[in-house]
Design a protein around this nucleic acid. Structure first.
Lengths: 210, 210
DNA sequence: AAGGTACACTTACGCTGTAAGGTTGTCAAG
DNA sequence: CTTGACAACCTTACAGCGTAAGTGTACCTT
């Protein structure tokens, strides 16, 4: 049943998850689902945990913290790209599933065992995840997916803003993107590396101080 | 009418914005609203632009880019804390309002005039906003607002995870947060400064190369 | 055979956004 | 003063939503 809901969400977005839709996909009436879940929120909790289960985080000690965290970040983004409907829902679950918990513990463990003191590990985790989820949010929202669409979208947006010429930097950006495109992968990894650089300096500073 | 919708959303969350609720607040029937807006999405667009209008970004040249960007980031977070319902909605508007457009142009302008080449300015903007919106997402989702609630929430979460003892790092975190609390302001500004440090290095590196 | 449990069903309530069409108040042109 | 246009409001209706409540039936255990 989670499988059915997942396929619905992946194919037609979060709004397509309704008790009636999921039930129909299973050849069943809506109310029958309540024999298996408490309510709709329960289904969403289950779906989110499936997404968490797709996130790969290396076993501690197998690689250094930086490559481990880098791979995890890329893995999270990949999972969120496969399941765009999940973007705003990963954080703040009231009933975190097992994969969710395991993931959090693994990340904290990686950082702690790599020499990050507790508070520094929390800072690092908060910073990385804020960036990852925030980037996914941008990526989900930004109007152009494929490069070839960029020009049309830009043109439409320009027309919807009456006095576009008052905003020279936006005009510059629009022209540039139409011209040279916009690469999400590059963008994501750039920011990610800035953050990892900062965290590395933080950790090394602490090492020295000890 | 946007005012009425704004008060509803601030007081009772995004879900409270329904045509019937907004209309009731104005002493009017739901369908009457359609004389002023095309549809509900129109209202949301208007609300989001109100939030954008509350974001302060210094006029270019008045202060250096770093303090300007730092203040803006804090201003964005403050606005999103006043209007938590807006957190997932700021990015990816199909019909950006005037305040939205002005804000984007001002930020890009600040960076460009401070010596960031175009691509670097885009990287910087993307990185900062991903972090800001991602942090706001965390903050909205995280279950404890007031420090005194922390203990209860932690206890409830522990009970909802059956084999909590398999996750030593989470146990450590829970204990620490109950003990010493969790300060969102400190957390936010820590990550923000890591990012600004990284961007400063990026800009200086470019300056030297020229 | 009896009882319990698991799963499915139907019906109903109050909510949602909004399409369609009717009524009224204001205001400018003839 | 009348007429017509127009804006703003109204009511009605429809299809969809989550889910509370109650009913039926097949199967497994005692």
């Amino acid at each position: 049943m989670l499988q059915a809901a997942l396929e619905l969400a992946d194919a037609h977005g979060f709004g397509a998850i309704s008790m009636r839709n999921v039930a129909k996909k299973l050849g069943v009436e809506a109310m029958s689902l309540y024999n298996h879940v408490a309510n709709k929120e329960d289904i969403v909790d289950g779906l989110v945990d499936i997404v968490f289960s797709e996130i790969e985080v290396a076993t501690p000690g197998s690689v250094d913290w930086r490559t481990s965290m880098r791979q995890r970040a890329i893995s999270v983004r990949a999972a969120l790209n496969r399941h765009r409907w999940a973007v705003g829902l990963m954080e703040g679950r009231m009933n975190p599933g097992p994969a969710n918990v395991r993931n959090h513990d693994a990340v904290l463990g990686c950082l702690r065992e790599s020499g990050f003191p507790f508070r520094a590990a929390v800072h690092a985790y908060s910073l990385m995840d804020a960036y990852i989820y925030g980037f996914a949010l941008q990526e989900k929202g930004l109007p152009f997916d494929a490069p070839e669409e960029t020009a049309q979208v830009m043109e439409r947006q320009r027309q919807s803003v009456p006095d576009m010429d008052d905003y020279p930097y936006l005009v510059e950006a629009a022209a540039e993107f139409v011209d040279a495109g916009y690469d999400y992968d590059t963008e994501f990894e750039f920011g990610l590396d800035v953050i990892l650089d900062g965290l590395e300096r933080l950790r090394d500073g602490i090492d020295v101080a000890h």
